[in-house]
Computed example of a mutant assay.
Amino acid sequence: MKLLAGNSNRTLAQAVSVHLDVPLTKAQVKRFPDNEVWVTIDENVRGEDVFVIQSTSYPANDNLMELLICIDALKRASAKRITAVMPYFGYARQDRKTGGRTPISAKLVANLITRAGADRVLTMDLHSGQIQGFFDIPTDNLQAAPLMAQDIKAHYAKTSELMIVSPDVGGVVRALALASRLEADLAIVDKRRSGPGKTEVANIIGEVSGRRLIIFDDIVDTAGTLCSAAQSLIDAGAEEVSAYITHGVLSGPASERVKASVLKELVVTDSIELPENIGPDCRIRQVSCAGLVGEAIRRIANEESVSKLFD
């Protein structure tokens, strides 16, 4: 197999390379003076099984174009099979029509990746499961729950005393998967969305008083909703609140909000590189998903089952 890395997360790509003991393919992913993406593959990839590692995180449009052009370059270089490895799939929150005359951008992005020439997609913790159906090619959606459960067990002596919290009704299945692995109880925050990026907590389902809570979700963006949910849980009598979120988008004032919040810590994977303004005083910590992504790549290359990673 061959591994090709875009510019969105070189650190993760290098870690996956080390895990698989496969060097990154020599390539140039650069920009013309007007910011057009320019890609050159500097190795022979004819007949090869190539995995393109590229999250479509900020700047989402630039990183998406890099991915599409890398796929096109590989297709025209006669690669045998091209797998788009997208630890974070951007535009995933636009997975349905939320009103009249609105797009389903996640479907559009799926079409672009397919038409560019990808034969397979590998991603992690999609915002909603139905996005897999947007692709007309095989799509593997890795679960971060085992990774998070392992980290929680390493940092909490008695996981059975914890309570896992879903920050909304839509994330119950995801939170339940983590709670089952830890043999922990489950609570739900009933939040109502009053506008784009604006939510308010309406109710808390479950007895959280005196409990140590862990909020589990797939995406943290500006952290406004997360911090307000944590405050509501503390107001309801919780002893402490931490958060484990798969994708740390952390845009705008996110780091300052987390720093000023009641959260004990925020743990995210390295599916997205942390912004440069996040220091050790922000109480934000990363766990690596390189082993999980690398093992999935190895299994795909060897035609083995990926789902068995989560049994």
Rank of each mutant, 00 (worst) to 15 (best):
A5L: 02
G6C: 01
R10W: 01
R10C: 07
A13E: 03
A13W: 11
S17M: 02
V18L: 12
D21P: 02
V22C: 13
P23W: 02
K26W: 07
Q28E: 14
V29D: 06
K30V: 09
R31H: 12
P33H: 11
D34P: 04
E36Y: 11
D42E: 15
E43F: 08
G47H: 06
G47E: 02
D49C: 03
F51H: 13
F51T: 00
V52Y: 00
Q54W: 02
T56I: 12
Y58Q: 14
A60S: 15
N61R: 13
D62Y: 04
D62Q: 08
N63H: 15
E66Y: 03
L67R: 06
L67Y: 05
L68P: 00
I71S: 01
L74V: 11
K75F: 01
R76L: 04
A79P: 01
R81L: 03
I82H: 03
I82M: 04
Y88M: 03
Y91E: 00
K97I: 05
K97N: 09
G100R: 13
T102Y: 00
P103D: 02
I104D: 08
A106E: 01
A106Q: 03
L108N: 07
N111T: 10
N111K: 12
L112E: 09
R120H: 14
L122F: 07
H127D: 05
H127T: 13
S128D: 09
Q130F: 10
Q130P: 03
I131S: 04
I131P: 09
I131M: 05
F134W: 06
L142G: 00
L142Q: 00
L142N: 04
Q143D: 11
A144T: 11
D151M: 07
A154W: 07
H155K: 15
K158L: 08
E161R: 14
E161W: 07
S166E: 04
P167K: 09
V169S: 14
G170P: 09
G171A: 15
V172W: 00
L176K: 15
A177Y: 06
A177R: 13
L178E: 10
V189Y: 02
V189R: 07
K198R: 14
T199Y: 11
E200I: 11
E200L: 12
N203D: 15
I204C: 13
S209N: 10
S209K: 15
G210L: 02
R211K: 15
R212F: 00
L213G: 06
I214Y: 05
D217M: 10
I219H: 10
D235M: 06
A236E: 10
G237D: 05
Y244N: 09
L250H: 08
S251N: 15
E256N: 13
R257N: 08
K259D: 09
A260K: 14
L263I: 04
V267S: 00
P280Q: 08
R285G: 08
S288I: 05
C289W: 00
A290H: 13
V293N: 02
R299V: 04
N302G: 04
S305Q: 12
L309K: 11
F310I: 03
D311M: 07
